[in-house]
Computed example of a mutant assay.
Amino acid sequence: MKTLMHTTSSRLLAATTAGLLCAGLVAGCAGDDEAAPEASAPASTEADAGGEETAAGDVTEFSYAGEHGKTALDLLLVHDPDAEVSGEGEMAFVTAIQGRAAEDGEEFWGLYVDGEMAQVGAGALETEDGQEIQWKLEEIE
């Protein structure tokens, strides 16, 4: 009887200790995930991509840093994997960013580099380190 109680107590203690250790690890990992992108992320990570919203919550602008040798389209898809694109490569046309689709025939997502409208499409625009790549939802006039 004494052995059974000792075994049950030992198991209960071991299970409690294991549970506390697991809880501590989970809590510790959750905290690390939140701090890590800011502390160690290079300037071109998703953490640096940003967008502006209207009062209704619709995204109207989205920007990120350029990277040498990568196209504006490649980087857009890194920073917003759910962006919607029609066509491929140099003929790609961005139709939605951050879940906000441009209304067909009324709006379009305009591409800007360092504040100037791009002269080529996103699939053809090779970016450089330090450039600001910006998308603006604009009305067709």
Rank of each mutant, 00 (worst) to 15 (best):
T45C: 08
E46W: 09
T45M: 12
G50K: 11
S10I: 04
T3K: 10
G57P: 08
G66Y: 02
M91A: 10
A56I: 06
G57H: 07
D48F: 15
G110F: 01
D114I: 05
G115F: 01
A30P: 00
E141G: 10
V26R: 08
V59S: 03
K2A: 15
G19S: 14
D74N: 13
I140R: 13
S86R: 09
A83Q: 06
L76H: 02
A35C: 05
P42W: 08
E46H: 08
E106K: 15
D58E: 13
R100N: 10
E116R: 14
L76I: 04
Q119V: 12
S40T: 09
T45V: 08
T95I: 12
T60Q: 01
G24R: 12
V78D: 08
I133A: 01
G121M: 03
L13C: 06
E53G: 00
S44G: 09
G89R: 12
S44Q: 10
D80I: 04
E46R: 13
D129S: 00
E141A: 13
T7R: 14
P81Q: 07
G105F: 14
V120I: 11
A72Y: 07
I97F: 04
C22A: 14
E53N: 09
D33S: 13
G99Y: 03
D48S: 04
E67W: 00
I97D: 02
D32W: 13
V94M: 11
G28Q: 06
T3F: 14
E53P: 00
L21T: 12
T71P: 02
Q131M: 06
A18E: 09
E139V: 09
G110P: 00
D104F: 09
P81L: 09
E67C: 01
H68F: 05
A41F: 06
T127F: 02
A30L: 09
Q119P: 10
S9N: 10
E141N: 08
E128T: 04
E61F: 00
G110T: 03
A41H: 07
L76C: 04
G89I: 15
D74W: 12
V26D: 08
M117N: 10
D80G: 04
T3C: 13
D82A: 15
A96M: 06
D80N: 11
I140Y: 07
G28W: 07
D114W: 03
L76P: 02
V120A: 01
H79N: 15
G121P: 01
A101D: 15
Y112F: 14
A43L: 05
A56L: 14
K70F: 15
L4S: 13
